[in-house]
């Protein structure tokens, strides 16, 4: 080759320079902007996760528009149960302050299944300190009712002892306010 030492040196230098420029170009192209703000990850991802809309409210968000249910629910033993567990999420019901959908209400046999989800003694893993459990159908027999009865025929689902305490008050078995 007829190239002199100097020309070849310049060519090599130009080659290195071009590769460095290309390298930086592709690096900026491939690495996201917020990469490395907090560590070796895209910091914007944190904000994106924060922006995920929430779907569950609290019981108070339901009680705002349902004062009748609120009064019963808050007074009963089931006050710690979330409305949304049985009825579906707040986001399915309300959007932008307006009602968008009707939430399901459990009826008949569904209620018994729902009750026994927690109140079944058979499971033998539920502490009496935490939850009162019953064995079915022994409970129906003990209470002298038909075996075809659903739980909701004696127990208000929102306040399980509401009707029972009221009946006791009427028959004089229990003082009012007890």
């Amino acid at each position: 080759m007829g190239l002199s030492y100097k020309v070849r040196l310049i060519l090599v230098c130009i080659g290195i320079f071009v590769m460095v420029v290309l390298g930086f170009f592709f690096k900026t192209l491939l690495i996201p902007d917020s990469f490395g703000v907090y560590g070796p990850f895209r910091a914007d991802a944190i904000d994106e996760i924060v922006e995920i809309p929430i779907r569950h409210g609290t019981n108070d968000s339901c009680f705002k528009c349902h004062p009748y249910e609120a009064k019963i629910h808050k007074a009963g033993l089931h006050k710690t149960i979330s409305c949304e567990f049985c009825h579906g999420t707040y986001a399915d019901h309300v959007a932008d302050g307006k009602k968008t959908g009707v939430l399901p209400v459990k009826t008949g046999e569904q209620i018994t299944t729902l009750c026994l989800r927690c109140h079944n003694t058979e499971i033998k893993a539920r502490s009496e300190k935490v939850i009162k459990t019953v064995a079915m159908p022994d409970h129906l027999r003990d209470q002298h009712v038909k075996l075809s009865h659903n739980c909701s025929q004696c127990h208000n689902v929102h306040a399980p002892l509401k009707y029972i305490n009221r009946a006791k008050q009427i028959t004089g078995l229990m003082e009012k306010g007890q």
Binding site: I54, G57, D60, Y90, D96, G97
Partner: peptide, 10 residues
């Protein structure tokens, strides 16, 4: 509309 955002929830 005030929106069903977190600010409604305490």
């Amino acid at each position: 509309p005030m929106g069903a955002d977190s600010f409604e929830i305490p």
